[in-house]
Design a protein around this nucleic acid. Structure first.
Length: 546
DNA sequence: GAGTTTGAAACT
DNA sequence: CAGTTTCAAACTC
């Protein structure tokens, strides 16, 4: 089934003519409609602009044309989603105040070739410094010819160069493993001398990492590269895109899905898995394994790699330096067994708390028998609660008697949240009952206490206390986690300062594997010239004598 | 601001 | 497809 390419409305003559009456660039209403449309010309496609793109203000709404299925076709050429960063970068003055988008300075192309950024972006030149410009309404005919010629050469010429995850192929998204796919250059860059750390590089210019699509030499535009980070800290310190990107990989790393956030690594993971068997078996040593595998990979002839199904070696990422990505400092601290252990601890504490409370209830009941016969004691819980998990409003009004909660200082007087209550009710029927719990488990206890206590308040009454105790323990666990993270952070900071020792000491004294991407191999830093390029990328361009 | 460098686009 | 040329932006001085 044929579909219209993203950001690409084929400006075929028939369509253009058919729809030209609908596209009125001077019509304010249409202009406004265009401003509201970010679909980039993909019929029915939702807004797919990434946060990064938003953050960079790459989108120039006024430059987009509303294109609905069977509705409109452009007079303007295809509308890339992303305006080149070179143009957006200057759309702001140095003081950060908004400024008119950058004007081109074309002299020989008449602004009718992709050299012209305006033309490439699908916008008319307006106030540019170009000479003999034909990229305007007055020269629509020649412009249309140029568009067609360009599309003839490359049907994707006007497609956005930078694609986010929703635009990628299903395969790409699946390889990414989740929704956190970073944008990447569709064609990839071919930089030779800039190290992909200058704006000559389209990837760097778009503030994205080089990907497996790139065929660059001596690429430094990969996550974890010191020079790249230096660039970011210097030039992009406040760049939301970087923050977003970092956050993405941090989240990814923290939750342990992959930890290697960028596409090239995901591609390469197949190779790694083939070498190592599985990435998941021993998450503690994943990164070390990864590094080793990169070394192995570097030593493996491309022909061998290419023989591995699902691998691609005809790109820089596969042959280049390990494009490690930022991993959360906690990524390898939190292990599966830690989670299990934590859950076990929580269950144990819950059971203990339930037992204690049960005993107290018993004692309380005995006292009540002796001292009171009519009225119900109101000491423990301030309000009678139905044993109904769905009554969140009621639950919120419960106040816990902190006199019973040893060590639960923080959450002692906190009302139980309806969410927690609901969660506990759900958990009660699943986790606790299904976990072959001991006889005095929560469920049985709750049932027991319910039967023991008058007015049917036992189980629900216990929840706040249980919650407090369990939360206190959880808090302690988190504190320890934070401490470990801080320790690791310090170690990593030291590693950055002392790269050599950092590379050799992957395992710290406390047994925690330092998983922050190490600095690139020595030849990367020391020899940024031909050596690195030739050693890490067998498929290199011939020496350029420019 | 002029000159140089760079890499994408265009061309052969 | 590879090599060369053209082009304009990025960069340097």
């Amino acid at each position: 089934m044929e579909k219209i390419e993203e950001g690409h409305f084929p400006p075929k003559k028939a369509e253009s003519e058919a729809a030209s009456v609908q596209v009125e660039t001077d019509n304010p209403a249409k202009k406004l409609a265009r401003q509201l449309d970010f679909t980039g010309g993909v019929p029915g496609q939702a807004l797919t602009v990434s946060l990064q793109e938003h953050a960079n203000q790459i989108i120039q709404p006024e430059q987009h044309i509303l294109l609905m299925p069977m509705q409109q076709a452009p007079v303007l050429p295809p509308q890339p989603l992303i305006r080149p960063l070179s143009m957006q970068s200057s759309s702001e003055a140095k003081d950060g105040t908004p400024k008119k988008p950058k004007q081109c300075n074309c002299k020989h192309s008449r602004c009718l070739k992709l050299y012209c950024e305006c033309f490439a972006s699908g916008i008319f030149c307006d106030g540019c410094n170009c000479a003999n410009c034909h990229n305007n309404v007055e020269n629509e005919a020649s412009r249309q010819e140029a568009v067609e010629a360009t599309l003839e050469r490359n049907p994707n010429a006007f497609r956005p160069k930078i694609a986010s995850s929703p635009h990628g192929t299903r395969e790409e998204r699946e390889e990414a493993g989740d929704g956190l796919v970073l944008p990447k250059h569709n064609k990839g860059c071919h930089c030779k001398k800039s190290g992909c750390l200058k704006k000559y590089c389209e990837c760097f210019q778009a503030n994205i990492l080089c990907s497996e699509n790139c065929r660059c030499m001596d690429c430094k535009n990969f996550e974890g590269n010191e020079e790249r980070q230096a660039h970011f800290h210097g030039d992009h310190a406040n760049n939301m895109a970087y923050l977003q990107q970092t956050a993405n990989v941090a989240i990814t790393g923290a939750i342990g899905s992959s930890g290697y956030g960028s596409p090239p690594v995901n591609k390469n993971r197949k190779i790694q898995e083939l070498f190592s068997g599985s990435m998941i078996k021993d998450p503690v040593h994943r990164l070390g394994q990864f590094q080793q595998e990169n070394q192995i990979k570097a030593s493996v002839p491309p022909s061998l790699l290419s023989s591995i199904p699902g691998t691609r070696v005809s790109n820089a990422a596969a042959l280049g330096p390990p494009k490690l990505n930022y991993r959360s400092l906690l990524a390898d601290i939190i292990q599966n067994h830690d989670i299990k252990e934590l859950c076990s601890v929580l269950i144990v504490y819950a059971q203990e708390a339930a037992k204690i409370l049960s005993d107290e209830k018993d004692a309380s009941l005995k006292q009540a028998k002796h001292h009171r016969k009519a009225s119900y004691p109101s000491s423990g819980v301030g309000k009678v609660l139905r044993d109904d998990c769905s009554t969140g409003i009621q639950a919120e009004s419960i106040m816990v008697d902190d006199s019973r909660l040893d060590g639960a200082d923080v959450s002692a007087e906190r009302p139980i949240s309806p969410g927690t209550l609901a969660l506990m009710c759900d958990e009660q029927d699943t986790t606790f009952t299904a976990a072959a719990a001991p006889p005095n488990d929560l469920t049985s206890l709750s049932n027991n206490t319910s039967s023991q206590l008058p007015h049917g308040q036992g189980r629900a009454e216990i929840y706040p206390e249980l919650e407090s105790i369990v939360l206190a323990q959880t808090r302690d666990c988190l504190k320890k986690l934070i401490t470990l993270g801080e320790i690791k952070e310090k170690k990593c900071s030291l590693m950055v300062r002392d790269t050599d020792s950092g590379r050799q000491n992957n395992v710290s004294s406390n047994g925690i594997v330092n998983t922050v991407p190490p600095p690139p191999p020595p030849q990367q830093k020391v020899d940024s010239g031909t050596t690195a390029a030739n050693t890490t990328r067998p498929k290199v361009h011939p020496p350029d004598g420019k």
